[in-house]
Design a binder for these strands. Structure first.
Length: 412
RNA sequence: GCGUCGGUGGCGGAGUGGUCAAUCGCACUAGACUGUAAAUCUAGCGCCUUCGGGCUACGGAGGUUCGAAUCCUCCCCGGCGCACCA
């Protein structure tokens, strides 16, 4: 349409556009073809990803979306990272069979602290030519009145709302479904209106909410908002989410190198390809080449690659060496948590005080199963009540270590 | 408001007067095997313990009983149906 405004599209951009439309993309609403046409027009689009500050870290599952944003940024589009500080206080009912606990203001604020830094590992917030915006939806959502809400809500029917999977299921299973849960898609949808967004990107679990925004933009602003849903990091065999806090496999962007590396190594082999596609910027060819190696080597490469993104090449290499040292060679880690003792103390008291175990029963079980080891003698500890004097290096379970040293009394 | 069914461990879900710290499944932890993968096998999975046992738990508060997660009363919370809106 707007021939004058259209830029020339470079051939390098063409392949980037193809990547935008395919890499980690599940589906595009209304269609890939229509979006492609729009992207080829050269018009600058406003693109955003919403993220809820419900945890103090951004996990690797979100990286997929930020990489997609990065590609669009390269193409010259306007990028907005939207923090759902207001919506986080309502709780997203997506994929949950019960209403999520609502967060308080201070919890949200605490979680937010390092977000920009974490996301900044992928997106360049320093870009002066086409600055990336960082916005908070409390700016507009907290100002809406009941009248506004009624207005927004009048664009949807209850029937449309209860079509949503999570809602429908709870109705069917006679589980409580609260009225305020309907607000969530409305608010998230209104974000699109407030931002004047042309494209919203999010995981497939956000489809319903994002489409609500599509409806609102259409009704309130008479324009079209595109929705791109991205694949979730799931084990293709078990269907299990790879970034799960309950399984302890959630990898935070701010995890320290060693921990990050080890966590990647703990991911199931079957999800390797997906992780490479969604969590790194390696090309298809490079990925295919890497995956020709045995799984363990491929995974080590993945771990290295990921640590490199959030830390540095040097840190990644160090983490790798440490991993080999500790887990392949069963050696003592170079750096390990240390406790200093003033006087004599029994082992079980130390471990409880350090929060390594939560009760005496727990440590007893650990000892009985042979999960507590003295790394210097290589022997299993038989009695949790032994009095510690001098120094001791402990291995607790599979992956925890603790160094205990007794301070010499004279110096005091 | 009335009626009815229900509230058990991180979750799902048994148990309806004693043998119940509570079958079982999932999740989780440890051990074996390994590549800290997966799969598999074994053990554990409220707290304390001199390893005999002790203590606290089944929405909350009382009560009945030698004895209650189980029975009764009241309260709180949820589902469903009816009523209200008409």
């Amino acid at each position: 349409m707007n021939m004058e405004k259209s830029k020339k599209i470079k051939t390098s951009d063409l392949s980037l556009i193809d990547e935008v439309l395919s890499r980690s993309v599940d589906s595009v609403f209304p269609s890939k073809e229509k979006l492609k046409k729009e992207l080829l027009s050269g018009r600058q689009m406003r693109v955003y990803v919403g993220i809820d500050p419900t945890a103090p870290y951004v996990h690797l599952g979100h990286a997929t979306n930020f990489f997609l944003l990065k590609r669009l940024h390269k193409l010259g589009h306007k990028i907005i990272v939207l923090v759902g500080d207001f919506t986080a206080m309502i709780g997203d009912p997506s994929d949950k069979n019960a209403a999520r606990i609502r967060l308080t203001k201070s919890e949200v604020k605490k979680n937010l602290k390092t977000y920009k830094e974490q996301i900044g590992k992928i997106l360049n917030f320093e870009d002066k030519k086409n600055p990336i915006e960082f916005k908070f939806n409390s700016r507009w959502l907290s100002k809406l009145t009941f009248t506004d809400l009624a207005d927004i809500a009048s664009n949807f029917t209850v029937q449309q709302m209860i079509q949503r999977d999570a809602f429908e299921r709870r109705l069917r299973e006679n589980k409580p479904l609260y009225v305020h849960e309907f607000f969530y898609p409305l608010m998230q949808g209104y974000d699109s209106v407030a931002l004047g967004a042309d494209i919203e990107i999010g995981g497939t679990d956000q489809t319903f909410n994002m489409l609500a925004g599509r409806t609102l933009v259409e009704k309130m602003q008479e324009r079209e908002k595109f929705v791109i849903t991205t694949t979730l990091l799931e084990d293709p065999i078990t269907g299990e989410k790879m970034m799960s806090k309950s399984r302890g496999t959630g990898i935070g962007m701010n995890d320290v190198p060693q921990e990050m590396y080890a966590k990647v190594m703990r991911l199931p082999d079957s999800g390797l390809l997906q992780c490479f596609i969604d969590c790194t910027e390696l090309t298809k060819e490079e990925i295919a080449h890497i995956l020709k190696n045995p799984p363990r080597e491929s995974k080590m490469r993945l771990a290295h690659e990921i640590v490199k993104i959030y830390h540095s090449e040097k840190e990644a290499t160090k983490a790798q060496e440490e991993f080999v040292r500790v887990f392949s060679n069963k050696d003592i880690p170079r750096i390990l948590p240390k406790v200093e003792l003033a006087g004599k103390e029994t082992l079980e008291n130390i471990l409880i005080k350090e929060g390594v175990v939560s009760s005496k029963s727990e440590i007893r079980r650990l000892v009985e199963s042979g999960g507590l080891k003295d790394m210097q003698t290589g022997e299993k500890i038989q009695d949790p009540k032994i009095v510690v004097s001098g120094s001791l290096i402990l291995k607790i379970g599979k992956k925890r270590f603790l160094k205990i040293v007794t301070r010499t009394q004279k110096k005091e």
